[in-house]
Design a protein around this nucleic acid. Structure first.
Lengths: 126, 126, 126, 126
DNA sequence: GTGGTCTAGACCACA
DNA sequence: GTGGTCTAGACCACA
């Protein structure tokens, strides 16, 4: 289930990528599972197929899904969990940025890590 | 001292906002201190004045700086450190996003919080 | 024996063509040998008959196989090994493309030719 | 100078990627050089800007070029020459395929390597 | 001016 | 049916 926030400044295709990864992480989608076709998902969430295609291509580039020509798209077999250096560096940059923001708002190290723990656990539940 | 990374995908004006806030946080800039004029900063860091102006407007919106007509721009008197709810919610959204990314890469809760602690401390030093 | 890689971005019908030619090259299949019917091969490798048919048409166009109405399909008598100019030109284009890619990755002429030799020999063994 | 072969079955955006890499390799384009804007190149070669944008994004993903928001696109500073494993594996697969093709056409190992050497050198000249 | 995203469609190869 | 490419535009944030 993909839910879009059209008001968000995060591009739609990125929202799809992120949520799809979330569903894989949660086990809602397992290796080998078929995911909706580009056209079907586009209809479901009322956007143009090109945008879904862009999201799927990005997911494929990240080895999260695999495309079988003419047949459809599937969750990849052995999902690459190795923290690929480039992605790791990007995540760290974003993390630094958020932490700075929180620090500026006056949060202590403990408050920040507590928040992180809470968010981490929250993701396991919903 | 503002240091830009022109290649970053973070907009330049956001980089200025972030670094200015960082200097306030670190005490390099104190309430009442004058900060360079739009034109001067633009010259210093070799970018177009419009971009600096945009950064200053954002800092003013966040009550970090104050402009006094005909006199210049200054660090605001009583800087708002209370975690204003909107900014807090935005930070949380970003945090959720980064944590998801790290979780997908296979990091455990401990690994994530360790990374957060490290980054938090790292920021106090530089 | 045809082994498919469904995840490959190489079309299935091309994989069949390539492997069939490989078996002829290796002598596993000799002029006059019968090859499985479209339906049988399709069943064997669990794909739709249309795809096998497309592969067979391509092999026939290249004079690698011959269909005798009512009898079946066979390896052609005098297999054309002369480097037909069109095919040669296509191979050269692809070769140029791969070499460029390797060159961009920093491989020297010697490294590329060594790789080619290795791959050439590797193919003679399996 | 980008020259398209619209009749080719190679996608236009891939042709752009390949030729841009070629120009970098040849030294026609050096680190820091500006490359034409998406719109300008699109006009020059008479295609739609979206296709140029797709090519540029792919080049950026490969760290060949760098985008500075609102300013333009430039050849990357330290171009990544390390044979990234994934790209290497893909090149090898293609190479295997071409060599098989040539072998089926009756070329000996020496003939293939001679051809490779010739093509490698040819690329240094034009 | 720049690149990034998205639309609403077309056409294609492939299965 | 499937995904991939491309068109011809629109609108946006940014510099």
């Amino acid at each position: 289930m993909i839910v879009l926030d059209l008001k968000s400044n995060k591009p739609i295709y990125e929202q799809i990528v992120e949520q799809m990864k979330f569903h894989v992480l949660k086990g809602h989608l397992k290796p080998g599972d078929a995911i909706p076709s580009v056209r079907k998902l586009a209809l479901d969430i009322a956007i143009t197929p090109g945008t879904v295609a862009k999201a799927y291509q990005e997911l494929e580039r990240q080895h999260i899904i695999e495309t079988i020509r003419g047949k459809g798209t599937f969750i990849a077999g052995n999902i690459e969990l190795k923290p690929d250096d480039t992605r790791m560096e990007e995540s760290k940059k974003m993390m630094r940025s958020v932490i700075l923001e929180l620090k500026v708002m006056g949060l202590s190290e403990t408050e920040v890590t507590d928040m992180v723990k809470e968010l981490y656990k929250e993701m396991s539940v919903c």
